[in-house]
Design a protein around this nucleic acid. Structure first.
Lengths: 126, 126
DNA sequence: CTAACCCTTGACGTCAACGTCAAGGTCAAG
DNA sequence: CTTGACCTTGACGTTGACGTCAAGGGTTAG
């Protein structure tokens, strides 16, 4: 199939597909007229990339998964490198949550300071 | 004082100060040679901006606080507009935390799927 | 006089993942 | 033959808060 069909089937733009190729995550053979040609496995591959991006992975994070699929594995996460990325991302998310909660506390304290009575709903007045 | 001293005292770069001015958050009178001249109140103002940025506010978010200080208030958060920003940011932070926790759960589920036994430490095996 | 340090404006670079145009080639249908 | 739908590469724009030159002028100590 050509790039337009792959884009539709994977739910992404053609621009995104060319970008993935440029980043070395996707490859395509070329037909005689220069058009990119893809097969079914590419649909799977792009879908994998998309699902990773939606949970906050970067394309760089997705690379091991892509390599894993390309290596013939049934799933992108079937390789130790992918599992390692999972661990790294979990740690990263935890860190981000901690940062956000810390900020939240500071902002709430400031709000309470600026507007006594504004934050009462949080702990209950009794 | 000139820009270099303000920068040192507020702990920011001169570039940042010029940027704040460009964004309309900071103003300076000019001495005869064209140098920017600041006073004590500007130290306070820049410090306020900084503390807001460190808890995740954008410069746009900081604007009401700056206006509030400039209007002669003792604190940047003494105005209703500032309080409103606090509320907006709290809601925004909560949303971000929810998103992150949702993603965390998905990643963890994927990890468990890819590597059974990897996530056991979370709930205890028993 | 000159080093040395301060200041000025202007403008490009950074980071991610594309969006959006521009200018043009390809191919099947009417 | 000509739409019109597809494809190509190339290149600039987006977002936020600056970093980092470049090229030049001001000021002061020695």
């Amino acid at each position: 199939m050509r790039i337009g069909e792959l884009a539709r089937r994977a739910g992404v733009s053609t621009r995104a597909l060319r970008y993935y190729e440029q980043q070395g995550l996707l490859s395509a053979r070329r037909s005689t007229n220069g058009y990119r040609e893809y097969d079914e496995s590419d649909v799977r591959l792009v879908t994998e990339i998309r699902s990773l991006l939606t949970v906050g992975f970067t394309l760089e994070d997705a690379r091991p998964f892509v390599d894993c699929l390309r290596a013939g594995n049934h799933a992108g996460n079937a390789c130790p490198e992918s599992v390692e990325v999972y661990r790294r991302k979990l740690a990263q998310i935890d860190e981000q949550v901690r940062t956000l909660l810390h900020r939240r506390a500071e902002v709430e304290a400031q709000l309470a300071d600026a507007c006594p009575g504004c934050v009462l709903r949080t702990g209950g007045t009794k």
